[in-house]
Structure formats: C-alpha cells, structure tokens
Amino acid sequence: MSVRLVAIALGGLFGFAISWGQFTDPDRIREMLLLEDAYLYVMMATAVAVGFVGVRALRRMGTRALVTGEPVSWTTSGVERRHLVGAAIFGVGWAVTDACPAPIAGQLAQGTLWSLFTIAGVAIGIVLFLRGEERRLARPATPRASAPSQARPLASAQTP
C-alpha cells in the first residue's frame, strides 16, 4: 500500500469527520470560542485522551509502521518562545476567520468560496515564515564562511 493512498484515505476520514462536526461553519466555531458551545472542548479532550493512550500502546507493543516498516516512535519538544508567540499569532487569525487549516479546506470542498481568501493568506503566511527562516539561517553563514572551523552549526539548523 502506498504512502500516498494511506495519507489520502486517513485525510479523507479526517475531512469527513470535521465536516460532520460542523467545524467548517464559521458560526459554529464562533459559538465555541464565545464559550456558548462546549462541543469543541469535549471533542479535543476526547481526541487527546484516545490519542494519548493509543500511541503509547503502539510504542509499548513495539509496533512497526504498517506502510513504512519503521518502528513507531516520536520525539517531543520543550517550550520555546516561538511556540508561544506563533500560537498567539495563530489564535488571532483563528478568531478573525473562525477557521483553521483543516476546516478551511473543508469549506472550499463544500463550496464556500470565501475560503479562497483564507487559503491564499495561509500560503502567504507560510512563505513569509519560510523566507524569515531562510534569512535567519543565512545570516551567520556569511561571517563563518571565512572561518571553516565554525561552520558546523548550520548543519543542525532546521526549520520546524
């Protein structure tokens, strides 16, 4: 089974589920963010609980990924400033549009053409971030080019 087919199938299930939960409706999201509807919070808490137990069960059983054959594993990250600043910026965008990346794709699929503006914005935001990271990574490279002994740090620098 190919990686692509499995990804499309699981993404399809995800898209179907969020559409059924009406997360594609900006008014529903707004009700949840105005704390008038607990649906989002119950859904997220259940998803995290099921996922939390499920992934640990996989690891404990020493499972190998069905398609790739790799042992199931993951790494976690400590909290950095970018996580908090980025999340705050994301939160503002979420509140203005009453949508986040998965529902935006769902909106387009359901014929809400307004989502084309949001999708274009998401793409621009990603490009701005990538350019910023590229500039940030390129900056120390110039002075270090003349000092080969210090050129190593660049090799470990990666974008998230």
Binding site: G86, F90, G93, L130
Partner: peptide, 30 residues
C-alpha cells in the same frame, strides 16, 4: 480580513510548529 487572518494562521502555526490539529490534537496526544 480573511486574507490577513489567513496570513496570521499560516505564519503563526508555522512558527508554533503546528495548528489546531498538529499541536492541539496530535502534539498533545504525543
């Protein structure tokens, strides 16, 4: 407004290492 909101979503989630699904559901489950 949707375009600007989208820019904030794209830039912010990228900086934060994930969106509602990547951080809010998957990262927390991990």
């Amino acid at each position: 407004l949707l375009l600007l909101g989208g820019v904030l979503i794209g830039y912010g989630a990228k900086a934060a290492g994930g969106c509602t699904s990547g951080n809010g559901i998957c990262g927390t489950a991990l």
